[in-house]
Amino acid sequence: ADLPNEIISQIFLVGTTDWRNTAPLTLPFPVIASSICYHWRQLARSNPVLWSFLVAPLHKEDEDCLYWISDWIGLSANLPLSVVVDDKLRRPRRSSEATNRLASEAVTLITQSWNRLRSLDISLDSFSLVKNQIIQLRHAPNLRQLSLCFRGPPFATIFIPEVDRPLPPSVTKLRAQNLALQSPCNLTSLTMHKPRLGYEGTQILFSGCPNLANLIIHNLVPVNSPIPAKRTEIRAESLQSLAI
């Protein structure tokens, strides 16, 4: 109570940044800060910056989880949103199906604020329940960073039909696991897990993403596609960093 509000706000900000950067799947710092006393609660809840990074609490009861997300989004006012939906936070003994269903409702709620989404990180077992929401992301004008990781059955790659073109050109950083996507043209960083990539796919990748500077490929699956007899080397002018 003796500390000036400016100092307390600074502590909240540093704590929130630290939580976000080091352990986002643990108890959120803004929640800790707002649990201390009435004064701190008022102060924390009136600072939208603390709430602009949201981790869907899938370990809570369904209703509580969805209420949290709505409340959280409301507290962030009109700031750009960064969101994580990761089923590592699943409730013990809740079935995989029930977790996926809740995650799908959470993503629906989050994508209602599509115009404010800056970063979205989804990591789930199954893709099918969130497919429609992901396709809706093509309308998210401010989305910069997107991570879509689906464990799914091993060696199965889910293809989103190219016609759906689910990603807006604002996306510059993309990570995908078990998902074949049309890469957005302004991409600078791409991380792929288990992609099936041959000569032709690589050609499409670099001609479609002329600014791609960082590429990380986990478990590359080479494709035995026919290589043109007179193949020319694919020039990846923009690429600065490559890890396979």
Binding site: P222, I227, E233, E237, Q240, A243
Partner: peptide, 17 residues
Amino acid sequence: VYFLSFLKIPNLSYLEV
């Protein structure tokens, strides 16, 4: 090696295989 065999990367400053 297969992947790198058909790529030309003139501005590469970091490579990890």
